[in-house]
Design a binder for these strands. Structure first.
Lengths: 123, 123
DNA sequence: AACCGTAGTTCGTAACTTATGAACTGCAGA
DNA sequence: TCTGCAGTTCATAAGTTACGAACTACGGTT
């Protein structure tokens, strides 16, 4: 099992960040990590937005987030503790993460509204 | 040849925007379009950041940008005129495009600095 | 110590996506 | 009508992603 590696903040690229956050599962994971006050384990994301994610897939998603520089992961015994690196990233790319998370919220709110309309129409 | 289609602004998703702009060629095209005061043709991007892009590849890149809702393309005779939809997007996702373009500028400036250092060291 | 259960990783492969050359469409001017 | 230009489509090769099965690593039990 290879050791966990994190890019130095100066090696973090916009492209990698955008790519990592262009996946709905990853952006949901990242949003939850960024909001959480304390580290979260991988397995707390086995269900994301009512969808079950296989463990192997989840492991890959965490690797993508980590290698993009978005999160920091530390092994503690049998589990992994993940935290967002948002403060560092915000220093390098001011406002980027905030704007993405904000856009994500706008879109989620809209989706919730649309699905309420739909269930009202059908029920 | 199928007609050009543009998503309505309400159907534009954050994921599609981030995916479209996570490619270095596309983000360079988009940045130039957003800065340009007037529409630009596809062929003005046959060379991007000192790299030649095949016409067919370029055509796909423009399609991705268009379908993500980032640009508007209109055929005028033999050529296509492309403009950025940044004002519309900014209304839907405030600050998103600005933050991405700004991060992109930060990174380009850094790259330029690094390559100057390199050529000074070797020369 | 040997064993078990939990948390996460790796590997192989099938499914999907992207890049590109070749052949095409469609327009404008000679 | 012919020619050339701007961009598109198609076929396919190359690259990426998803996920089950088999694995590692750790901590607690017996």
């Amino acid at each position: 099992m290879r050791p966990l590696t994190h890019p130095s903040i100066d090696d973090v690229s916009v492209e990698a960040i955008l790519h990592a956050l262009s996946d709905p599962v990853r952006v949901a994971i990242y949003a939850e990590l960024a909001n959480a006050g304390c580290p979260q384990t991988c397995s707390s994301f086995l269900t994301v937005r009512d969808r079950d994610i296989p463990k192997s897939t989840l492991s890959q998603h965490f690797r993508v987030l980590r290698e993009a520089g978005l999160i920091r992961s530390e092994r503690h015994g049998v589990e992994m503790r993940n935290t967002s690196r948002c403060a560092e990233i915000d220093r390098r790319f001011p406002g980027l993460i905030d704007a993405i998370m904000n856009a994500h919220r706008v879109q989620s709110a809209e989706r919730a509204k649309a699905s309420r309309r739909k269930s009202a129409a059908s029920g």
